[in-house]
């Protein structure tokens, strides 16, 4: 399980936790997160912005 960070606002997407508020189940890998998912904090899109693999 990896974590990805939004470079715009620092929000962390943790694959282990998913993002249940948006219907993304715990354990969802980054590549399986829907392409139209946007950062809940700053609104930048998955493809539109950088997610940094942090381990």
């Amino acid at each position: 399980m990896k974590k990805w960070q939004c470079v715009v606002c620092g929000l962390i997407y943790d694959e282990a936790e998913g993002w249940p508020e948006d219907g993304i189940e715990p354990g969802t890998k980054w590549e399986d997160v829907p392409e139209d998912w946007v950062c809940p904090d700053c609104g930048v899109g998955k493809e539109d912005f950088e997610m940094i693999e942090i381990g």
Partner: peptide, 10 residues
């Protein structure tokens, strides 16, 4: 805002 700027950067 941020979104337009990121689109421009790309």
């Amino acid at each position: 805002y941020v979104l337009p700027l990121m689109a421009c950067a790309r």
